[in-house]
Nucleic acid binder design. Structure first.
Length: 530
RNA sequence: GGGCCCGUAGCGCAGUCUGGCCAGCGCACCGGCCUUUUAAGCCGGGUGUCGCGGGUUCGAAUCCCGCCGGGCCCGCCA
């Protein structure tokens, strides 16, 4: 059974209605590693629903935390100076570097939130700042303040250095300088928490002493208390989270205890997950080592990222490499799809697992009919020679890659071709790139022998006298070589030199078929008369 | 100091929860074929002490204990 379904079953043993939480701190560019979080939450929501439970999922933007590091690209020269002043302030109060976005949070979170729909993820969106400023957390904050001693005792069990006697689980925003990380709270009464803006290790305080109204969002609960409060507020029953929170004595452990003893709430069923690395190294918002969902959609279908996440256990570390390894991911996805549609056989057990992975990779219910796909490796060649979409579809049909394609098949093919085009220009190694020479490459064809020219002349003549399928054409090159007693490899070389200006290229039959015939004939003729 | 994950074929991995067709998949590789350059196709081939050592069991990659190696997280804040 797939791990998503195991979790769904466990949840249903606890109850019928479920709320699956996800969310991250909006501290910089949101990358595909963060997709684990929402995709898993959404996947569980889906699985619970399929098992006739009631479930919803949400994504919560932690946008009311203080900025402790300036993220890429705001830490680049010019901008860094400007953003230094905002250290310690809540993300929501920091301006956007781009006027098209409302603020720092909008700038980083909107591209992510907007892409969620493209990935078939159906989640409610919450904003921490919205929750606090809307006063929704007021009651829970009061409870936490009333139980400050109890909370402090719980946390101290897990700390080397105990919290101060007057510690409160609340971080106030300084009304004078707007910073949150710099304040120290020490007392409270009615709706207000007293603080002094003293500074912290990465930002200095302004010295102001004041009162923050916690019912109006003039501050927030400290993380280890906020998390359980949020569970209670939003009735969370299940939540995936990264391994940093999952550590013994970490925020889940203390959150569970605080939830039970302070908020009288059963902690959600935890789903810890491993992180996604990029080309072997940890993604880092501050260094700009990130790969984002919109970047993903440029080079691959959304189903592929879902496949990437659901194909292995959540606790398994995953590495993503948009270079050549992406091709393997494509092949694997296509293979799983063929297994789903019964076109490829495997063991019963494996088949069951793969079919479920395929379902989870889909944005909606899978198609009833088998889907025709253009192998991505081939798409990377076709996209470099095709004249237009119509022509590309003709080529695909002539090669039997698409047989009687439906409108959907054609749409998928065109989409994959555009992904392939983007991939070739952005991530492919040089050797997979080629460009048809627009003008006769004089330098390159100068070294051609008379025999090679004779071969090209023959090919040109044959091309104009009849139609060839790609395979026929490929074979025909060998026939021509035999006829004029020229080694096939020499003739291939001549073909590539004439068209590309280099000695090798994509498989010749495919390649020439994908080009305009008259263009090829005239190019060959030009070579002969050069 | 504590915790988590990983260790299965040359490489990447599935299988471990629920012990018994679990010795598998992809790529690579080897042999053969297509007169067939190329990250093209077809047919055939598994190349393995399942990290090591114990234990439980009729039976262990799978469960338990110990150890080794690699990676990561926490021990500030989130």
């Amino acid at each position: 059974m797939h791990w998503i379904d195991k979790i769904a079953r466990l949840l249903l043993r606890r109850g019928k209605r479920h709320v699956v939480a996800s969310g991250i701190s909006v501290s910089g560019p949101i990358h595909i590693g963060h997709c684990n979080d929402v995709f898993i939450a959404d996947g569980i929501r889906r699985a619970v629903g399929e098992l006739s439970g009631k479930a919803e999922a949400f994504w919560y933007a932690d946008d009311y935390d203080p900025m402790r590091r300036i993220p890429w690209p705001l830490n680049e020269k010019g901008l860094a100076e400007k953003y230094r002043q905002y250290l310690g302030m809540p993300y929501i109060d920091i301006p956007s570097p781009d006027p098209d976005y409302k603020n720092f949070v909008d700038y980083f979170a909107r591209p992510f939130i907007e892409s969620l729909r493209d990935f078939g993820v159906k989640v409610k969106i919450y904003s921490g700042a919205g929750i606090y400023r809307g006063g929704k957390m007021a009651g829970l904050i009061k409870t936490a303040l009333e139980h400050a001693d109890k909370i402090r005792a719980i946390l101290n069990k897990y700390r080397l250095e105990p919290l101060p006697q007057d510690w409160l689980p609340y971080d106030a925003i300084c009304e004078k300088c707007g910073r949150m990380a710099t304040t120290r709270t020490f007392a409270w009464h009615d709706n207000c928490v007293n603080y002094k803006c003293e500074g912290c290790d990465y930002a200095s305080g302004c010295g102001h002493e004041g009162e923050a109204d916690y019912t109006k969002g003039e501050g927030k609960l400290t993380w280890r208390v906020e998390w359980p409060a949020r569970w209670k507020l939003l009735k969370v029953t299940c939540e995936p989270f990264g391994k940093d929170h999952a550590v013994v004595g970490g925020s889940y452990d203390t959150g569970k205890i605080i939830a039970k003893h302070v908020f009288k709430y059963l902690a959600p069923y935890p789903v810890p997950y491993e992180w996604v690395s990029l080309r072997g190294s940890r993604m880092s918002s501050s260094k700009g080592v990130v790969f984002t969902p919109p970047q993903w959609l440029e080079i691959a279908e959304p189903e592929l990222l879902r496949h990437f996440i659901f194909r292995s256990k959540s606790t398994k570390a995953k590495d993503f490499d948009p270079g050549l390894p992406l091709l393997d991911l494509y092949d694997e996805f296509d293979l799983v799809e063929q297994v789903y549609f019964g076109e490829v056989k495997t063991s019963d057990r494996r088949e069951k697992q793969l079919k479920r992975i395929y379902e989870l990779s889909q944005l909606r219910k899978p198609s009833k009919k088998p889907v025709q796909r253009v192998p991505f490796r081939f798409a990377t060649v076709l996209t470099q020679v095709m004249r237009d979409e119509k022509h590309a579809i003709e080529v695909l049909a002539s090669k039997n890659i698409l047989t009687k394609p439906t409108r959907v098949d054609i749409k998928l093919a065109i989409h994959r071709l555009s992904c392939a085009g983007n991939w070739v220009s952005k991530y492919a190694p040089e050797r997979l790139r080629f460009k048809v020479a627009e003008e006769l490459p004089f330098e390159a064809v100068r070294c051609l022998t008379e025999k090679q020219k004779e071969g090209l002349a023959q090919l040109a003549a044959d091309l104009s006298s009849r139609e060839y399928t790609p395979v026929e054409l490929h074979n025909h090159i060998y026939e021509v070589g035999k006829k004029i007693e020229l080694k096939a490899s020499e003739l291939f070389k001549a073909v590539y030199l004439a068209l590309l200006g280099r000695e090798s290229g994509p498989r010749a039959g495919n390649f020439i078929s994908a080009l305009d015939k008259e263009f090829v004939i005239s190019r060959f003729k030009k070579v002969i008369s050069s």
